[in-house]
Amino acid sequence: MQIDSIVQRCHDLAGKTVDFLQDFIAQMRTVHVDSLEQKWIKIALLIIGLLVGIITIDAFFHGVNPPSKVETIDSARLHLSKEFAESNLGVQLDDKGAIVVRMVAGRYSFFPKHISVPAETKLTFRWVSMDVLHGVHIPMTNMSTMIVPGYVAEITTSFPKPGEYPVLCNEYCGLGHNHMWSNISVIAKEDWQAPTHTIANKEANNG
């Protein structure tokens, strides 16, 4: 009864779709396309396929992905959250010994204003905004993300070369946007010392 009528409907729909596709293809076959142009379209499709293939493989197999961890946070009450309370910001080791860097963006600086991290080491940055939209970029590196109020921007990267780098805001956030920057020191791996206090990373942050 009911099942039958649904099956019947699906059947009709499939039939219609097939009819439509046949008609569509038949009509398109009447279109005149110059043979040279056909060749060009094929080449273009090949190039596009190649590029699409590269980014897809990168994304699936090499984990090359932009910061996309859809995680929310109350930007208006960061100071009350455990994770982004002032004393908890900066570079820390989590309970597994991995390095987590917690940073707050607010007009017009990044806090803490200076941090030191080891080179050639996996770092997980967690950025939040306490007011408006910001962006952060450490020039010459791929440490780049938007910092949208209400969301945690998490990005994992490592810096190959030791040195002093600026940390620049790269999204307009108000008339003082020019002044929004801070510093990061990337230190040779063997010279770097882990911060003394380690705090577990398991607290919920929707404080």
Partner: peptide, 23 residues
């Protein structure tokens, strides 16, 4: 691409479409 409020699957989907539209 650089935003935290959308997941990477959607970004990849739109990224592929972006290449298609160069045709």
């Amino acid at each position: 691409y650089m935003d935290p409020e959308q997941a990477s699957g959607w970004k990849l989907l739109h990224g592929i479409g972006t290449f298609v539209v160069s045709l």
